[in-house]
Amino acid sequence: MENTIITIASGKGGTGKTTVASCLAMSARQTVQFLDCDVEEPNAHIFLKPRLTREEAVSLDIPHVDHNKCSFCGRCAEICMFNALAVLADEVLTFPELCHSCGGCWTLCPEKAITTNRREIGLIKSGSAENIHFTQGELQVGTATSPPIIKAMKKTIQKNSLVIIDAPPGTSCPVVETMEGSDFVLLVTEPTAMGLNDLAIALQVVRVLDIPCGVIINRGTDVYSKVETFCRENNLPVLMKIAVDRAIAEAYAMGIPAVEAKPELREDFRKVLNHIKGVTAGERTCCH
């Protein structure tokens, strides 16, 4: 059996990504590897309640200048596209928070005066809850760059398993890093003008990456049908609609997953999983 990697994304924040991702994992009739890649604000642990048993730091290489070897030629500052070094008359300043760890300075220093230090940017925590192998990333507060943590988390993906990834909101680098290599992207949206706007942008990202996708409409009401029209026009299958329900919101507030508040939803989530497995197995085509 091949891996099936499903990423739950949305564009807009707060549409229900974590709810959908955790409900899918809890509804699966098999072992699931779950990655919470919303490393800025990871929340899935609140619902899946894993026992976290391992913790590993993620760090980046940053330049360390040996002032005895340095000739203060200024080459490193000149080539750094991120302004992470400044060369003065007899000192080189480094700004680790600006460094992207591209390696330009230590690769190209004519005096070989630059080596590397490590700068910690976050943590990867892992553990398990029943049938779920759980991993979450945590960006250190005050650090700007989350993609290296996401990249490190994705290296822990094991072969031959069902992988469910909770993505961060938005449409830029952290989202791209999360989606890349997925077999299917499930876009969660809500029936509002904002939900639709951000669904359309998220869909563009998915199309750029050329990944099959489908939609779940959360907090469904009858007052706004434009999301469904959009899905129809763009050949995007709507795999599930979750009706607006204060009981789900109240359960969510207490960290109770929707499938525990409404056990009947479990079967619907299983259908979504089966559909996705069908698509990824090439039985159906969708959204291409």
Binding site: G13, G14, D38, E40, E41, L139, V141, G142, T143, A144, T145, S146, P168, P169, G170, S172, P174
Partner: peptide, 10 residues
């Protein structure tokens, strides 16, 4: 502002 605590928020 944007959601999160990363680059665009900072």
């Amino acid at each position: 502002g944007p959601p999160g605590i990363g680059c665009p928020v900072i």
